[in-house]
Design a protein around this nucleic acid. Structure first.
Length: 354
DNA sequence: AGTATTTGACCGAC
DNA sequence: GTCGGTCAAATACT
């Protein structure tokens, strides 16, 4: 694949495939006769196109990341780990796509299939954790006293996990209909190193089940004509699915490792901790190299957040959240946020994120 | 009660 | 021995 990349052919293929995708979308817009059949066909064409792009992207992604990390002086996984991971992935991997989170949530946009998580594994070399949104809030009794000392961090409560740095995990999912319909499709999900709002999704196997996608397609055909464009599965997938192609481009583009296609969804501050930025007692990181680029569509109310790395912002927000809950539990008659602000030693805690 | 998620343990590949 | 992928019991959620 290197020669493919070197001569620019890879970029050309991606351009052509992207063009095909656009044509399919146009086809859907100008449907005339047999709309159901045409929509079904275009949906399939679109899926195949996305997969083609994903396959090509995956074959260049690792090399691009390595060069990117080398340029930035980042420490990455050991050579053995890299080779092992790559070998294992290429053995089973069918398709890789990079998707953005839906509305700034902790999970990527719905891909039209129903998935059930069956495992999670700590992966060496992954910069960002796969967050665990459904994880209950655990509080240890020694929280406030211990958390301002790095040497006394426990391993149980959420605050300590934030200060320690959460485990860098990859989530393993299989089709919900594995048993009912024998569908063996699986996927692996983990945040990208460059941008925690983006996810790398590795699809393994193909769906043999018939469920959500076709149901959604059928439902779309019953909607008023004026709403079809906005709610069709194709449109939704297209809007939410961000296929990163920078890895395919020349090395010059790798200078900016964080450059991705713009967000497709609005990302609100609440997505990263539920606190308004101006209410956070924690000062924003002074460095700008890890800043989070916010698209114009989302920047109206996010000016403050835009200067944060999303992971830093989320970690600080979670820290504040945990302290607030603990204080609320001990003194429920007093606004928790206010007291938590008093408890927090801003300088001490900020040093943890330095 | 049924379903989904979490997480430690196990297994095969390397 | 290490690591990634999967299993399955425990737990949480609806």
């Amino acid at each position: 694949m290197e020669s493919f990349d070197d001569n620019g052919g890879c970029r050309l293929v991606v351009t052509e495939l992207s063009h095909i995708k656009d044509l399919v979308l146009q086809l859907e817009v100008h449907l005339d006769g047999s709309p159901d059949l045409c929509r079904h066909l275009t949906s399939k064409i679109f899926t195949l196109t996305e997969r083609s792009i994903g396959i090509i992207t995956s074959s260049n992604f690792e090399s691009g990341r390595k060069r990117c990390a080398a340029d930035a002086g980042f420490a990455t996984a050991t050579p053995r780990t890299q080779s092992t991971k790559k070998r294992k992935m290429t053995d089973k991997m069918k398709n890789q796509v990079r998707v953005s989170s839906a509305g700034g949530s902790e999970t990527p946009v719905d891909d039209g299939h129903s998935w059930r998580k069956y495992g999670q594994k700590e992966i060496l070399g992954a910069k960002y954790p796969r967050t665990q949104a459904a994880r209950p809030l655990l509080l240890c009794t020694q929280m406030l006293g211990r958390h301002l000392s790095k040497s006394l961090l426990c391993s149980k409560c959420k605050l300590c996990s934030v200060l320690n740095g959460e485990k860098f995990c990859r989530g393993y999912y299989r089709c919900t209909h594995k048993h009912s319909q024998g569908c063996n499709a699986t996927k692996q999900l983990q945040r990208t190193d460059e941008d925690p709002t983006l996810f790398d999704v590795f699809y393994v196997g193909t769906h043999t089940c018939v469920h959500k996608t076709e149901t959604a397609t059928a439902a779309a055909t019953h909607e008023p004509e004026s709403n079809q464009d906005a709610h069709s599965p194709l449109r939704n997938l297209s809007a939410g699915l961000t296929v990163k192609t920078e890895g395919l481009a020349a090395a010059a583009e790798l200078q900016d490792c964080s450059a991705t296609t713009p967000f497709s969804f609005a990302s609100t501050p609440a997505s990263f901790g539920g606190l308004e930025p101006e209410r956070s007692p924690l000062s924003a990181p002074s460095t700008s190299d890890a800043s989070w680029a916010v698209t114009p569509a989302t920047s109206d109310s996010n000016d403050v957040v835009a200067s944060f790395s999303p992971f830093e912002w989320r970690a600080q927000s979670e820290l504040h959240e945990v302290v607030s809950e603990l204080v609320a539990a001990s003194a429920p008659s007093v606004p928790a946020v206010d007291i938590a602000d008093e408890f927090l030693d801003i300088d001490a805690i900020s040093s943890f994120f330095a």
